[in-house]
Amino acid sequence: MNIFRFAGDMTHLISVLVLLLKIYATKSCSGISLKTQELYALVFLSRYLDLFTNYISLYNTLMKLVFIGSSLAIVWCMRMHHAVKRSYDKEVDTFRHYYLVLACFVLATLVNEQFTLREVCWAFSIYLEAVAILPQLVLLQRSGNVDNLTGQYVFFLGAYRAFYILNWIYRYFTEQYFTRWIACIAGIVQTALYADFFYYYFISWKNNAKLQLPA
């Protein structure tokens, strides 16, 4: 575990906490894409299949439980909680995310480290995570103004994989082997998708103005 990896996990955890805070404090999920949340729940469920069979460390197991638990809780809240689901804007959250799931699954069956259930599911979760933010970014561009907590949520979510890229670069130079090219390429694509969001986030921060995404 190197500092970049730890910073990445903490940034990811912060993004989840910010989203939970927003939903719990405001009892609203306005500006949040349910489809992105569903995709993330699928990402964690398909990636952490070995949660109970392959113990790595207490930290590893705890973090996996937090990510699976929080993503399912958020999906449940947005679908079932009486107050929260009323604030869900399904007319704006129209990205056809099932195509993303299908495309990632097909790609995972073609491009993986080994053609085994666990490796195909792992590659699927890596590819799906790279594009999972698309419904959320499309929703933000449609809804124009972004509230602070939503903006911070997306920012930290984007930043965490950037730290992972630094972690992979660090491991490439410090460890004798490097076999994470699938995660590395998908991670670069994932982080690149946030590029324009980061740009407008930085502009709004510099001008101390409201975050505005061009329609």
Binding site: M1, R5, D9, H12, D50, N54, I56, S57, N60, M63, K64, F67, E113, W122, Y164, N167, R171, E175, Y177, T179, R180, A183
Partner: peptide, 10 residues
């Protein structure tokens, strides 16, 4: 150790 290295990340 190899397998450990590739799947110890989240």
């Amino acid at each position: 150790a190899k397998d450990q290295g590739t799947k110890d990340e989240l």
